[in-house]
Amino acid sequence: MDLDVFWALLDESAYATSEQGERTSWLVSRLSSLPAGDICGFETLLSASRGRVNTFSHWHAAYVLCDGLCSADRFFGFQSWVIGLGRTVLASVASCPDALAEVPAVRTLLAVGAESWPDAAWPVWDGLAGVAREAFFAATGRSLDNALAILGHVPVTDAGPFDGEVWDLDSPAEAAVRLPRLWKLSGGLEEAA
């Protein structure tokens, strides 16, 4: 599976469905009709895409967006959510976590505030992590993890570990300096005043 097909599948899943559960099922169904090698390719590309937003800076951005309610598990789901927003959004956010402030879905979430989000509105897509595994089993009756191991690929199953500097995620000063646009949108500047 090449990168264009990977992104086309994700884009089609967004257009063909109205909510995440349906989107997850749509992807499983579509992937399970493909050759096993393509399903492995999807998982490999998903892991690579996730790696682009698997930094402490990205976790900090998710933490600010989620008003401090972003555990490592939720951050893993957040990475999938960012991927689900599309190739352009992923590229922008991968290069600068503060670019989340320009994403319409993020602006909508921040306008409402995390305390008002229903469960379905949280910026996570937990189901994406299992799509290729389900599809591979449906197509072959075998484990995707075994197939990936034979190919020398270790699937990403959680967030981290992080290389480099870490800081206090709860620090308003760190957020204001490291994520100025996102921090301002989240109301952080008013809180600090």
Results as ranks from 00 to 15, higher is better:
2 D>C: 09
2 D>N: 14
2 D>R: 10
5 V>E: 08
6 F>M: 10
9 L>I: 09
14 A>N: 11
18 S>Q: 09
19 E>P: 01
19 E>L: 08
20 Q>W: 01
20 Q>Y: 04
23 R>W: 00
23 R>N: 04
24 T>A: 11
25 S>R: 05
25 S>W: 00
26 W>A: 07
27 L>P: 00
27 L>R: 02
27 L>D: 01
28 V>R: 02
31 L>G: 03
32 S>R: 06
33 S>P: 01
37 G>V: 06
39 I>V: 13
39 I>H: 01
39 I>L: 06
40 C>E: 14
40 C>A: 10
41 G>Q: 06
42 F>T: 04
43 E>L: 06
44 T>N: 02
44 T>H: 00
46 L>P: 00
47 S>Y: 00
50 R>N: 03
56 F>I: 02
61 A>C: 14
62 A>T: 13
63 Y>L: 04
66 C>G: 14
68 G>H: 08
69 L>M: 11
70 C>I: 13
72 A>E: 10
73 D>E: 14
73 D>P: 01
75 F>E: 12
77 G>F: 09
81 W>H: 04
82 V>P: 14
83 I>L: 15
83 I>F: 11
85 L>W: 04
85 L>H: 15
86 G>M: 06
89 V>G: 09
89 V>T: 14
89 V>N: 12
89 V>Q: 03
91 A>L: 09
91 A>C: 12
91 A>I: 11
92 S>Y: 02
95 S>Q: 14
99 A>I: 07
102 E>T: 15
103 V>L: 07
106 V>H: 04
108 T>H: 02
108 T>A: 06
109 L>M: 11
111 A>E: 09
112 V>K: 15
113 G>L: 04
113 G>C: 03
116 S>P: 07
118 P>C: 11
118 P>I: 07
122 W>C: 15
122 W>N: 15
124 V>G: 13
124 V>P: 07
129 A>D: 07
131 V>C: 05
134 E>Q: 09
134 E>K: 07
135 A>P: 02
135 A>W: 02
139 A>G: 10
139 A>D: 04
142 R>Y: 06
143 S>P: 01
144 L>Q: 08
144 L>N: 07
148 L>K: 05
148 L>A: 08
150 I>L: 14
151 L>N: 09
158 D>N: 10
158 D>C: 13
158 D>E: 13
158 D>S: 15
159 A>G: 14
161 P>M: 09
162 F>Q: 03
162 F>W: 12
164 G>T: 05
169 L>M: 11
171 S>E: 03
175 A>W: 00
177 V>Y: 00
179 L>C: 09
179 L>G: 12
179 L>Y: 00
181 R>P: 02
181 R>M: 08
182 L>G: 07
183 W>N: 13
184 K>L: 12
185 L>S: 12
189 L>T: 11
189 L>G: 08
193 A>N: 09
